[in-house]
C-alpha cells in the first residue's frame, strides 16, 4: 500500500549560527512558543540569535515544548537545558511549559520579536498564526501599544489553510504560489468559515474551476477577513507580518494590495517571531535580576 501523503505537512527546520560559540556567551536565554499548530524555540547568546527550531505542535503543550527544545539543542554539542540562564514560554500553551521561568503572552513577544526581526521602524505587526490572527501597534522599542485579536475560529489561520490543503490535495507550502498563478483574479469565496468554504470550494471544482482558481478565491477571502483587523487597528508604516501564514505569498500579496502598503521582507523564519521575542525578554529579565543581585 502506498504511503498516504499528508498535504498539510510543512518542513520542520532548525538553525544554528556557525559563527557563534555559545561557550563564550555571558547570558544564554531562550524562548519557547507553543502554538496550536506549531512550536518554536529560539536561543540567544548575549541577545543575539544563536539557534532555533520550528516544529509541529504535539498532543500536549509540555510535549510540544520538549520537542522544540530537543530539536533545537540536538545539533549543538554540549549545550543542555541547565546551561540556559533564563527561559520564557509564550503562545497558546505558555502556562503549560514545565521548564519555563516565566510566561509572557504571544502579543508582547511578537511585538518584540518583530522589532528585532524587522528593525525599530516597524509600527504595525500582523501575526497570522495557527488558530488566530492579531494586529499589534508597537513603538520603536517593540513595546505593544495596542492590539486586536480576531475571534477564535479556523478562518484566516494556519489551521484553516491546512484543512484546505488536505481537501484539495495540494501541499500547504505551495498554496500561495499556486493561488497567484491565475489568469484572472476570481471573486472571493463568500464564506471564510472553513466548514462552509470547503463545501463551496468543492462546488467550484465540480463546476470546472481549476485548483489554482479555487485557492485564489480562498486566499482572497482570507485576506479580506484579515483586512478588517488591520483597518480597525489602523495601518501605520512600517508594516510587518509574522507567523506561519506570512509564508503564504498568496495571502500576503493580496493583503498588501488591499491596504496599499507593502510588508517588510523578512530576514528570518517568520514563525519564530514569538519565541524570539520571548528569548529577548528572557535575556532582559535575567540581566535585570543579575544587576539587582550584584547591586545587593
Amino acid at each position: 500500500m502506498a504511503e498516504k501523503k499528508e498535504y498539510f505537512r510543512w518542513v520542520e527546520s532548525t538553525y544554528v549560527n556557525p559563527e557563534m560559540d555559545w561557550k563564550k556567551a555571558d547570558i544564554i536565554s531562550a524562548g519557547i512558543d507553543v502554538g496550536s499548530v506549531s512550536s518554536q524555540m529560539v536561543v540567544l547568546c548575549d541577545g543575539q540569535i544563536y539557534a532555533y527550531s520550528n516544529t509541529r505542535s504535539g498532543s500536549s503543550s509540555p510535549k510540544s515544548a520538549n520537542n522544540a527544545m530537543d530539536l533545537c539543542l540536538k545539533d549543538i554539542p554540549g549545550l543542555t537545558f541547565d546551561r540556559i540562564n533564563y527561559l520564557i514560554g509564550t503562545g497558546y500553551g505558555r502556562v503549560n511549559i514545565p521548564f519555563a521561568h516565566k510566561a509572557i503572552t504571544e502579543i508582547s513577544c511578537h511585538a518584540l520579536g518583530a522589532n528585532f526581526m524587522y528593525g525599530p521602524s516597524v509600527r504595525t505587526v500582523l501575526d497570522m498564526g495557527g488558530q488566530d490572527c492579531k494586529t499589534i501597534h508597537i513603538d520603536e522599542k517593540g513595546k505593544c501599544l495596542s492590539f486586536l485579536m480576531n475571534d477564535k475560529c479556523a478562518a484566516g489561520t494556519g489551521r484553516g489553510m491546512e484543512v484546505f490543503a488536505e481537501m484539495l490535495k495540494v501541499p500547504v507550502t505551495e498554496i500561495g504560489d499556486m493561488s497567484l498563478d491565475v489568469a484572472e483574479e476570481p471573486e472571493a469565496v463568500s464564506s471564510t468559515c472553513v466548514v462552509f468554504a470547503k463545501s463551496e470550494a468543492s462546488g467550484l471544482l465540480k463546476s470546472g474551476w481549476s485548483k489554482n482558481m479555487v485557492l485564489a478565491a480562498y486566499c482572497k477571502a482570507m485576506a479580506t477577513r484579515i483586512l478588517e483587523l488591520l483597518t480597525r487597528i489602523g495601518v501605520e508604516k512600517e508594516f510587518a507580518i509574522t507567523g506561519g501564514i506570512a509564508k503564504n505569498k498568496g495571502i500576503v500579496k493580496r493583503i498588501e494590495k488591499l491596504i496599499g502598503v507593502e510588508a517588510l521582507i523578512p530576514k528570518y523564519d517568520t514563525q519564530i517571531a514569538g519565541a524570539l521575542g520571548a528569548a529577548m525578554f528572557a535575556n532582559a529579565i535575567y540581566k535585570k535580576q543579575n544587576k539587582k543581585m550584584s547591586a545587593a
Partner: peptide, 10 residues
C-alpha cells in the same frame, strides 16, 4: 456595507 461597518468597528 463592509467598509462602513469596519469603520464603525474601528
Amino acid at each position: 456595507k463592509d467598509e462602513i461597518f469596519t469603520a464603525a468597528k474601528s
